[in-house]
């Protein structure tokens, strides 16, 4: 890595900040730190990081406030750290534009994997989209509306395809129930979460090797879905 990417860590617990910082530095990232929303906003104004790691349970206020203020002008990926109990905050942060979340306690390996996935996606979207995706024994060509398993076509209904395309183009991010329902079914169906359950079930049956233990189309319980390539 010739030019090290900068990651901003917003976390008010010094000990957590420390091991996250150490892990990131070992991976070759440059790290800046902030212990609250105010100092974080000052930090991003000085120099734009490549990625932000944000603890939702900040003492000085709402991590949500940072997401809102930051998303107005920057599309840098935001990875949210949260305790299991802060479900509504987590969903609210994702709905407002955060990209992914990691529950506490988290393993460093998992943190780095998520971080890389988010950076890959950011690069991909900067390079104006990608039409062909490959995962497991499946290949999807969005432009040709073609899904193949080991070269054999897989039949998807139009809505299944639309849902798959949305998840693929956002691979690495968590898509909330709300975001998926609005994008695929329209705002009128925002509360019809049973549509999602049924269609995700269908997609898993058609695309996953073991639909009972999927490896690509993952459920984030109480939050939404994540596609892992």
């Amino acid at each position: 890595m010739t030019d090290a990417l900068t990651v901003l860590v917003i976390e008010d617990e010094p000990a957590i900040r420390r091991f996250v910082r150490d892990a990131l530095r070992r991976e070759g990232f440059r790290v800046t730190e902030a212990d609250g929303v105010a100092s974080a906003l000052a930090r991003v104004a000085d120099a734009l990081p490549a990625l932000v790691i944000l603890d939702l349970g900040l003492v000085d206020g709402d991590g949500l406030a940072f997401v809102e203020a930051f998303r107005i002008w920057a599309d840098v990926p935001i990875l949210v750290l949260s305790a299991r109990q802060d479900e509504q905050d987590k969903v609210a942060a994702l709905d407002r534009g955060a990209d992914d979340f990691l529950g506490k306690p988290f393993s460093v390996a998992e943190l780095l994997a998520r971080l890389r996935a988010l950076l890959r996606r950011a690069t991909r979207s900067r390079e104006h989209g990608q039409a062909v995706f490959q995962f497991g024994d499946i290949s999807v060509d969005l432009a040709r509306r073609e899904v193949l398993r080991d070269g054999e076509p897989v039949k998807l209904t139009p809505l299944e395809f639309r849902l798959l395309a949305l998840l693929l183009t956002n691979a690495g991010r968590v898509m909330t129930h709300r975001q998926l329902l609005v994008e695929v079914w329209g705002a009128a169906h925002i509360d019809d979460s049973h549509y999602l359950r049924i269609y995700i079930g269908h997609l898993r049956q058609k695309l996953e090797r073991d639909p009972a233990l999927p490896t690509h189309l993952l459920t984030e319980v109480g939050v939404g879905y994540r596609f892992v390539l």
Binding site: A15, I16, F19, A23, K104, P105, F106, S107, V108, A109
Partner: peptide, 14 residues
Amino acid sequence: LRTPLTVLYGLADT
């Protein structure tokens, strides 16, 4: 309770 456990877990994992 969770904060020190998160730190402990992260440090041990590192």
